[in-house]
Design a protein around this nucleic acid. Structure first.
Length: 796
DNA sequence: CAAGGCGAAA
DNA sequence: CTTATTTCGCCTTG
């Protein structure tokens, strides 16, 4: 920053002279030429402006900002980032109110809201904030929320007015609400709900009650390109909102039958905004929700594959085009006979998710974020039971598809013939006029030639209108090919479910247009305090590297570094120590290593079963059953096969030996593997999560990155630099210098061979490409390692 | 029906 | 400049 400013000062005409030099060759100031004359004329033309700018620059010269305080190298300053102008976190103009100590919020000009979570008013205000803003960080004491166009839309469609929002924020803020924020909220309110995306007769339409607005949108070049043909005007009646009960809620239960269920937690709730604090909502006017809706709607047809492009463009024009499905008045699509089983009672937060989705009596498309083990599936199924139309469920793998089908049968009264799986090994349809289809993303988005039955099944999927599309693990949807599901399956509403709405690329934002806005995000800490998910102790164990290892680590090529980090003998010992400690406590332990070589070495040395991608299906099942049932086996080693599509048995301890780069999602997903743990230990924790990190290596950086999401969820990572009494632990591996040396030689050999293999691969590919282009790219065969899951079973 | 090719994701 | 590496699922062949 300072150099930029310096440049500005030193020559206000510097950029100008550069511009001039392009026109004429530079001349000395002594020579007076025509070009100089024109320059003079230029200067006089904007003389006063130039002068004042010079003065301003001059003043800046004597500003302290031109003499920045720089930290000594190697020291990172976290705090000052908050006060950089780029962050718009300048609080200078925001005067504190006299009674600020009685108020829990800070609101700055960037739309960031900070909540003092320890404040006596925090609980009530929190419920309001969740309704109007998106939570971004919720550790123990200070919570951060962000006002966005989507969060405000959700608030408005749940019945709040923009005036309510502004006054309530103003009321609880320690500082006066910045004027730009009030303006932002009001402006957003004006454009909400004006434009809708609707599906009729398997065609998509952009619809509005404002004819002039539609004309304006049509003038946009991008939108007009996405249009099919002609505009039509249709008549609709304003929808009513009376009497919708979400199945599984207390109200619905009360309607069905009087059950002696726990009434301790029952709070008065009105349809639309259940569980919100009374005093904050006292000023709401429920009835003006649809009051000013016109009878005439104007619509244009949109090309199937351009739906998300139109949504994106509308959002950019500040007219978010959202999907709302008035399923109760849909007489075109046949009803599906599906209901939750009478005994089913959903939890309070699941109910909150659903009231966000069905807040105004229609089904809003969007995303619900719940941690693993918090019952995402049941939320999806309850949504399906509310809409009662044809349902498509998209899962990431065929295993997961089977689980979805089973869950549907477990929780609902759906006829087994009405639900079917469409995957590579099962291709059947439901019996009646409508039903539930569970399929996989790759099945639907496959572009290569299909098998005949798959093609006909796809034809069937694409030619119909579906009431609800449930997208499991919705964070995968922005991927290049998976995003095509949005165009190829026509759903009136879409519900995305995920535990971790995270990607390391910048594509998460696309989900706003592909699926819809985030409707609800659970607070992990809150759920664990309520006992719905486990309380987890997280720790990062720092393992120093022996000197000779570290030397090799420094000299090896960067590609081999992760191998050295994983094979660090101190790390191995830490792993061994932790396994021993927790096995003695009676825990079930899962060890993750993304490096398959390290995985094999660790598991074989410690005589534990291990499982990776190359393990055959039958052997996988055998190993998992063994781990699940045998008391003799309490530790299992897994590659990243365990991250997805493996129905892992319950574990209470998780040890991470090596991981892929800085993936926050992977870290959260792995922590999720112990969230189902129920057994409580005397120290109050149900489960443990250890991340083993080789000290002073790339792993330190990645590890910090990986933890960001969990830290925002309120998890605190304890750093352990030495494990208690590890030096006196008998039977540790690689305890002697010789053993350590042997290990180093092994690792060196492995890194050599993998490097060599790579070379050979490249060479082969090159030669083949040169010699005979029809062979294409070779080298895949060399990659496939032949060894199968090999393991020792002490008890069988 | 088992195995391998291939594309794609993270 | 867009890597690396492991894994999954679909489809085809013997």
């Amino acid at each position: 920053m300072p150099p930029k400013r310096k440049a500005n000062f030193s020559s206000p005409s510097a950029s100008k002279s550069k511009r001039d030099s392009r026109v004429s060759t530079p001349v000395s100031s002594a020579q007076k030429t025509t070009s100089d004359k024109s320059k003079d004329r230029d200067e006089t033309a904007k003389g006063p402006g130039e002068l004042s700018r010079l003065a301003a620059n001059n003043a800046q010269r004597f500003d302290l900002t031109d003499f920045p305080y720089t930290l000594p190298p190697g020291i990172t300053d976290i705090a000052s980032a908050y006060f950089q102008p780029a962050q718009k976190r300048d609080f200078t103009d925001l005067a504190l109110k006299a009674n600020h100590q009685n108020l829990p919020l800070w609101i700055d000009g960037s739309g960031k809201i900070t909540l003092e979570n320890f404040h006596e008013k925090a609980r009530r205000v929190q419920e309001f904030l969740i309704a109007v803003a998106e939570p971004t960080s919720r550790p123990r004491f200070m919570h951060e929320y962000k006002l966005t166009i989507h969060s405000l839309y959700a608030a408005v469609s749940a019945g709040l007015t923009t005036k309510d929002i502004v006054t309530t924020l103003e009321r609880f803020s320690k500082n006066g609400l910045p004027p730009n924020i009030a303006e932002f909220i009001t402006e957003c309110g004006k454009s909400y709900g004006k434009v809708k995306l609707v599906l009729r007769n398997t065609k998509y339409f952009l619809e509005t009650t404002d004819g002039a607005l539609l004309q304006q949108l049509l003038k946009d070049p991008e939108i007009s390109l996405c249009r099919v043909e002609g505009a039509e005007a249709t008549r609709t009646s304003a929808p009513t909102i009376a009497g919708l009960a979400i199945p599984g809620t207390k109200e619905a239960a009360g309607m069905r039958e009087a059950e002696g269920l726990n009434h301790g937690v029952v709070r008065r709730r009105r349809s639309g905004h259940s569980g919100m604090a009374e005093d904050i909502y006292a000023l709401l006017n429920e009835d003006d929700d649809d009051a000013d809706e016109h009878d005439i709607t104007h619509a244009i047809e949109i090309k199937d594959d351009k739906v998300s492009a139109v949504a994106a463009r509308c959002l950019a024009l500040h007219y978010p085009a959202l999907e709302e499905y008035d399923f109760r008045h849909d007489n075109v699509n046949p009803d599906l006979e599906i209901d939750l089983k009478p005994a089913t009672q959903i939890r309070q937060y699941q109910e909150q998710c659903l009231s966000k989705m069905f807040g105004n009596g229609r089904a809003k498309s969007g995303i619900i974020v719940l941690p693993c083990g918090a019952g995402k599936t049941l939320v999806g199924i309850t949504a399906a039971c509310t809409i009662k139309k044809g349902i498509v469920v998209l899962a990431t793998g065929s295993m997961s598809a089977i689980q979805w089908r089973d869950e549907f049968i477990k929780w609902t009264n759906i006829k087994p013939s009405s639900i079917s799986i469409f995957s590579s090994d099962q291709k059947s349809t439901f019996a009646g006029t409508t039903g539930v289809i569970v399929t996989t993303y790759s099945m639907v988005t496959n572009t290569r030639n299909r098998a005949r039955d798959a093609a006909s099944m796809m034809e069937f999927l694409g030619s119909r209108e579906w009431g609800l599309v449930i997208l499991d693990e919705v964070h995968v949807v922005p991927a290049q090919t998976f995003r095509r599901v949005v165009g190829s399956i026509k759903g009136h509403s879409k519900l995305g479910l995920t535990a971790t709405l995270l990607r390391e690329d910048r594509k998460v934002d696309d989900l706003n247009c592909l699926i819809g806005p985030k409707l609800y995000e659970a607070n992990w800490m809150e759920l664990s305090q309520q006992g719905h998910i486990a309380r987890v102790q997280c720790a990062e164990v720092w393992c120093p590297m022996p000197a000779d290892f570290y030397d090799q680590y420094l000299t090896t090529s960067p590609r081999n570094r992760p191998l050295f980090c994983a094979m660090n003998p101190r790390k191995f010992q830490a792993c061994q120590y932790l396994i021993k400690y927790h096995e003695n406590r009676g825990d079930k332990i899962i060890v993750f290593s993304d490096n398959v070589y390290a995985l094999e070495i660790y598991a074989k040395k410690l005589m534990k079963p291990f499982l990776y991608g190359g393990t055959s299906i039958s052997e996988r099942q055998e190993i998992l059953d063994y781990f699940r049932n045998s008391p003799a086996c309490s530790t299992l080693f897994l590659s990243k096969i365990g991250d997805t599509s493996l129905d892992l048995p319950e574990a209470t301890v998780l040890i991470q030996v090596s991981a892929q780069y800085g993936s926050r999602r992977q870290e959260a997903q792995r922590l999720g593997r112990v969230l189902r743990a129920k057994r409580r230990h005397e120290d109050g924790f149900n489960a443990f999560f250890y991340s083993l990190v080789s000290k002073d290596t790339v792993e330190m950086v990645y590890s910090a990155k990986r933890q960001v999401f969990l830290v925002d969820q309120g998890y605190a990572f304890r750093v352990i630099t030495r494990l208690k009494n590890i030096e006196n632990t008998p039977g540790l591996a690689f305890a002697t210098p010789e053993a350590e040396h042997d290990l180093l030689q092994k690792v060196l050999a492995e890194s050599e061979s993998s490097a060599w293999k790579k070379e050979e691969e490249k060479e082969a590919a090159g030669l083949l490409a040169d010699g005979n282009m029809f062979y294409g790219r070779g080298g895949r065969a060399a990659r496939k390692r032949g060894f199968r899951g090999h393991w020792s079973r002490p008890g069988l």
